[in-house]
Simulated scan of single mutants.
Amino acid sequence: MFTRRENLKQYMQFYPVVSTLIALNIMIYVLTILPIIGDFVFYFGLGSNALISEGEWWRFVTPMFLHGGLLHLLFNMFSLYLFGPELEKLAGKVRFLTIYFMAGLFGTMVTFLLQDLAYNHVGASGAIYGIFGAFAALVYYARNTMPQLKGIIVPIIVISVIMTFLQPNINITAHLTGLVVGFLIGLSYFHPKRIISWKMRKK
């Protein structure tokens, strides 16, 4: 399920939303490391609680597309590359985007509410944890019919949550919020009655 065998052209054709998000994150990262404009782009989108409190509301969204270094970018984009396609295929493009953006948005909002005004953050991790949360909802409904999925997803989530608390400079609030938001939206999207409705419309 999470083994990618497509070439680049096939990947972009089969999973256009995930491909677009990866490309967008990479392009914005490249902009942030360019001379002169790089610092402006980074600090314009930085998730700054102090600046959000002053009315710069776009900072609830822009941190999802910024990263604090190449390794940070590569880790998040590899996770999106690996786990995003299956969710895009199962949920559909619009529902996938809803899970991704709502998880990221609420991650930033809860960070603003719970952390002090000096707190700054960047990264797509909250949105990516939303993907994990949505898979957890799917596992909840299909725990008896898809044991293989449960055997993959549950250890990934457990390890990811543990690593959240062990690694330095991690926005724990955004990670956990994204996970919960993805799970709650997934409970709605993957409810058995709704799945049947999707299948009926596709006939």
Score class of each variant (00 low, 15 high):
7 N>I: 10
9 K>L: 14
11 Y>L: 05
12 M>P: 01
13 Q>W: 07
17 V>E: 01
17 V>L: 09
18 V>R: 12
19 S>P: 09
20 T>D: 00
21 L>G: 07
21 L>S: 00
22 I>W: 08
23 A>W: 01
23 A>Y: 08
25 N>R: 13
26 I>T: 08
26 I>N: 03
26 I>A: 13
26 I>G: 07
27 M>Y: 05
27 M>L: 15
27 M>V: 14
29 Y>D: 03
29 Y>C: 02
29 Y>F: 11
32 T>I: 08
33 I>S: 03
33 I>H: 05
33 I>F: 05
35 P>F: 02
35 P>M: 08
41 V>H: 07
41 V>W: 03
41 V>R: 13
43 Y>P: 10
44 F>V: 03
45 G>Y: 02
45 G>C: 04
46 L>N: 09
50 A>C: 09
51 L>T: 13
51 L>S: 11
53 S>M: 05
58 W>G: 10
60 F>M: 03
61 V>D: 03
63 P>Q: 00
63 P>H: 02
65 F>I: 10
67 H>K: 01
67 H>Q: 09
68 G>I: 06
71 L>W: 13
72 H>V: 10
72 H>N: 13
76 N>A: 01
78 F>N: 04
80 L>M: 05
82 L>N: 11
83 F>D: 14
86 E>L: 14
89 K>A: 14
90 L>Q: 10
97 L>F: 13
97 L>P: 01
97 L>D: 12
102 M>Q: 06
103 A>T: 07
104 G>R: 14
105 L>F: 13
106 F>P: 10
107 G>K: 14
108 T>K: 12
111 T>M: 08
114 L>D: 11
115 Q>P: 11
117 L>H: 11
119 Y>G: 02
124 A>R: 11
125 S>T: 14
132 F>S: 03
133 G>A: 06
134 A>V: 12
135 F>R: 08
135 F>G: 12
138 L>M: 12
145 T>W: 08
151 G>S: 00
152 I>E: 03
152 I>P: 08
152 I>H: 07
154 V>D: 03
155 P>G: 05
155 P>M: 04
157 I>L: 05
159 I>Y: 09
162 I>R: 02
164 T>E: 02
169 N>R: 13
170 I>W: 00
173 T>A: 11
173 T>K: 09
177 T>Q: 03
179 L>K: 11
186 G>D: 07
186 G>K: 00
187 L>H: 02
188 S>C: 09
189 Y>S: 06
189 Y>I: 15
191 H>G: 04
191 H>S: 07
193 K>F: 08
195 I>E: 08
195 I>S: 06
197 S>N: 13
